[in-house]
Amino acid sequence: MRRYFRCFLFGFFLIFIAVPTFSSPFSGAGTILHDVRPGKGITRVTWLSEWSSPLEGTPADTRVFIADSGKPGATVFIAGGTHANEIAGILSAVLLIENAVPSAGRLIVIPDMNMSASTWTESTKVPSWVRIETPNGPRFFKYGARYTDPVHQGAPDPDRYVHPKGGDALEGSEARNLNRVYPGKPDGTLTERLAWALMSLLKQEGVDIAFDLHEAGPESRLANMIVANPKNLDLAALAVINLEMDGIRMKLEPSSDAFHGLSHREWGDGTKAYAFLIETPNPAQSTENGNPVEDPQYPLAGRIATHLASIGAILDAWNMDCPPDKRIEFDALPDWRAVAASGAGAFLNW
């Protein structure tokens, strides 16, 4: 009897304590499973750690949605949520996952690029969740932070952060800013490992065009701007001209030579991808009382429309001049004018 009891205790220890403690946690463990409902264009869903194993099981591992037409064409990458409080970028990426159906080429989307940043909110004045009404009821999206959660980072912030390639000494917390640490390191801090994993994806998948979707305070110089790696500045210039004809005024800047670690600079320099960063004005990023969704001057739907229109204009410019087997075409794409008019909810799946 005593023997059976010992066996029972050993089995209990093995099943409920030892195995969960010492085995690898699931990908993305400890973070939020965001509400993303893929549309019929999505052919595969995986995790970013597939491209860089040091990210596996960390709070920064994140889902990757792939829409492959199965036909030759360009590979386009889109990231939302590099800064998890820049909600228009996240919703734009989600709208693409839920609606886009490529007919030539391939679309790879990561809607919540920094999952660790999604887990916390920097200010009590901004919402933790954003509610979007759809024809079938509300859906909720996490309004997170700009930086990786310090608890997840695995290292204390330095007094000052200097990118390994040099440049200005920034606030120490910038070590947790994903858009300051590219190309990252496979054995670095959590934020550096995340950056490294994305660089690995861009290289291994042969990404041709890459977008990083951001927001800035409305008074910021960056608001309503496309930042382009110098090698693809002309493509962005053509897009700016075409956007203006559609009533969308975007400014244009090339990546700085001296400011390292930013996506548009390092993605473009370190891979073959044409790299772009798009910024829209988020009122909640300039004043503590700003509303990130229903501001009358800068409503969320309008900002999402700007992101989608800018992506569309750049892809149109790409298609004008690329080889025939490098076009990116879509059977379905969320129409930015309809998003501006009807709101994002009309384009969210149920």
Binding site: L233, D234, A237, L238, V240, I241, L252, E253
Partner: peptide, 14 residues
């Protein structure tokens, strides 16, 4: 100014 790149694209590409 990067507006020069816009004018170049306007003049030459368009």
């Amino acid at each position: 100014t990067s507006d020069a790149a816009i004018v170049k694209v306007l003049a030459n590409t368009r």
